[in-house]
Design a protein around this nucleic acid. Structure first.
Lengths: 224, 224
DNA sequence: TCGACGATGACATTTCGATGACACAGAGGA
DNA sequence: TCCTCTGTGTCATCGAAATGTCATCGTCGA
């Protein structure tokens, strides 16, 4: 799950980003609409956190124009307490949410996770494949009923694969969705993370390398 | 599937080419319209990625003139973000697509694959001949229902033959579509790949050599 | 029968994924 | 403040799979 944070107050931006990262989300952050626009063209996000007023304009206006182009990523607006009228404005699009400053970072995190989940409409909260269960709500993974302790990155990658069972998923796609913009697409981070996942799952054949095309979940390997 | 990338910024060209190659496409790349023109006369491509502005002119103008000659290969234009008018211009031809810089390579790859697919309009996603099935989407091949594991090259060659059942396909045509420009047309790579294919298909007569004219799929051979 | 062309097996090279070791940053405790 | 532990990323290396080259053999047809 990858999130973009658009907030001009640097302290707040850092605090929010840190909070979201601790919930195992990949976070990019920028300070104005122009930078946000560029980031949104370059990458794909599962959710965007937008401060309402930014140095180069009102984010609602920007979002409204993107929506007209069919852009559907859920947005959480951060609005100032006094401008009550904002709340109405910010809620035009059904998929969005808002939060009034000041707010607890934990609250924000909860809402963002909820928005991310809602975006993948109808996706069951618990993913299952072979004897692996991924509880996306609790962020827990079990294999043959045994709870595993995965790191944030490991969880993120496994979740992405579990949503696409038996399909080859490219390294590029994984980098795009599980890492933030700082990730080097040429490095072998993905390989290494896959290896660590395989080790923890104690069933290396479950995640199969498809030469030249990435990785995929499979039950065909090894025993089969 | 073979793609030509025309982009003057070398870094971008390399990044784009690498991305497309990782999607199992054969990629040639050049830096200006003159070179593109030559490449397009010499080879045939399933899709072309054109930067909008090139050192020796506007690629739209060039494409427009080629179109008037009946040239129909789909083109994906890369346009600069600020020139909004470009978007309209670039879209005159129904089969084309455009992408605004900056963009994610993954996004570009997805669109190119889509264009390639669209180009073979109405071609069924699963090709069948005799008891062989080629699932072009999943990149899977079955013979008599049994899944075979082919390499990228083998798949590519088989796919090309399957689209032209019972027609003799020359080595030159195969080299052209399944290999990139670096391939040596005098070598016997094709012969060797055909042999490996025959072995994996466990039915050598299925791919028949037509002396002096190449290879063709046939059910007439051997067992009858 | 000869010669061109295709078939074949062996081998060389290249590409790609696997792996272990290490580097580094941040959190949290002493 | 310093230390330690954990998560994460980088790197060099290894080895297997994929791909390409080559020499040689067989066979078809003029």
């Amino acid at each position: 799950m990858r999130v973009l944070v658009v907030e001009d107050d640097e302290d707040l931006r850092i605090a929010v980003s840190a909070g979201l990262r601790s919930a195992a989300l990949a976070v990019d952050s920028v300070g104005d609409i122009a930078a946000a626009d560029e980031a949104l063209w370059v990458n794909s996000y599962d959710c965007v956190v937008f401060d309402r007023m930014l140095p180069d304009g009102d984010s609602i206006v920007y979002i409204r124009s993107r929506r007209q182009e069919g852009w559907a990523v859920p947005v959480l607006f951060l609005t100032a307490r006094d401008s009550l009228a904002d709340r109405v404005d910010g809620f035009e699009h059904g998929g969005d949410d808002y939060l009034v400053k000041p707010f607890a970072v934990a609250e924000l995190t909860a809402r963002v996770l909820s928005l991310c989940r809602r975006a993948g409409t109808g996706r069951p909260p618990v993913l299952r494949y072979a004897d692996v269960e991924v509880d996306t709500g609790r962020r827990e993974v079990r294999r043959a009923g045994v709870l595993l302790t995965l790191t944030a990155k490991e969880f993120s990658v496994l979740e992405y694969l579990m949503v696409r069972p038996e399909q080859a998923v490219s390294r590029a796609a994984l980098i795009e969705h599980c890492w933030d913009a700082a990730a080097d697409p040429m490095s072998n981070v993905v390989d290494v993370t896959i290896r660590r996942l395989r080790n923890k799952l104690r069933q290396p054949e479950l995640i199969e390398a498809v030469r030249g095309r990435g990785y995929r979940l499979t039950t065909a390997g090894g025993a089969g």
